[in-house]
C-alpha cells in the first residue's frame, strides 16, 4: 500500500513528529511504500537544518533524512507555512535578501497543492497533529 503522512506538530514540543516518524518506520518495515511526508503548520520546523538536539535524544531531522535516503520518501514542506516561520532554502533566502538558509534537500519547499495531490494519489494519508 502507498502511504503519505501529514505532520503538523513542532518537533520536540509535541509528540506528533515522534509518532509520525515511528509510524513511517513501521510502514516501510511492513513492506509498504511511504511515498511522501508533507510538513504543514508548525510541522515545518522538522525541516530546520540546524536542529541540534542533545545526543541522548532522538535526532528527528536526521531520521527524516535517512527515510528519504533509504526509501526515497519525498520530504515536502509547505512554502507559505515555512517562509513566515523563517524556514527557507538557498533560493528563497537570496530572493528575500537573507544572509543564510535554514532548509536544504532532501527537504523540498512546495505548495499546498502537493498535499492535496498526496491525499488523492496514494492509498492512505495519515495526519499527525498536536
Amino acid at each position: 500500500m502507498q502511504y503519505a503522512l501529514l505532520v503538523q506538530g513542532s518537533p520536540y514540543s509535541y509528540q506528533a513528529s515522534h509518532s509520525a516518524l515511528r509510524f513511517a518506520q513501521a510502514v516501510v518495515r511492513r513492506g509498504h511504500s511511504l511515498t511522501a511526508v508533507f510538513f504543514y503548520h508548525d510541522g515545518v520546523y522538522n525541516a530546520a537544518r540546524l536542529a541540534a538536539p542533545p545526543q541522548d535524544e532522538p535526532h528527528l531531522y536526521d531520521a527524516w533524512a535517512q527515510l528519504h535516503r533509504e526509501h526515497d520518501t519525498e520530504l515536502l514542506v509547505c512554502i507559505a507555512a515555512a517562509l513566515r516561520r523563517g524556514l527557507m532554502d538557498e533560493r528563497e533566502s537570496s530572493r528575500h535578501g537573507k544572509a543564510g538558509h535554514s532548509l536544504e534537500p532532501p527537504f523540498i519547499l512546495t505548495g499546498l497543492g502537493q498535499l492535496i495531490e498526496a491525499s488523492t494519489a496514494y492509498d492512505r494519508l495519515i495526519s499527525f497533529s498536536p
Binding site: Y40, H41, A81, L112, G113, L115, I116
Partner: peptide, 28 residues
C-alpha cells in the same frame, strides 16, 4: 474532502491554515 476546523480565530493559525487548505483543494 472534509476539512474540520476546531480552533477559534486569532489565538492560533490553525483556522487560517485549515481554510487555506480547503481553498487549495477546491482550486485543484
Amino acid at each position: 474532502l472534509l476539512v474540520i476546523l476546531r480552533h477559534a480565530p486569532h489565538g492560533s493559525s490553525w483556522l487560517k491554515e485549515g481554510l487555506d487548505t480547503a481553498l487549495v483543494a477546491a482550486a485543484f
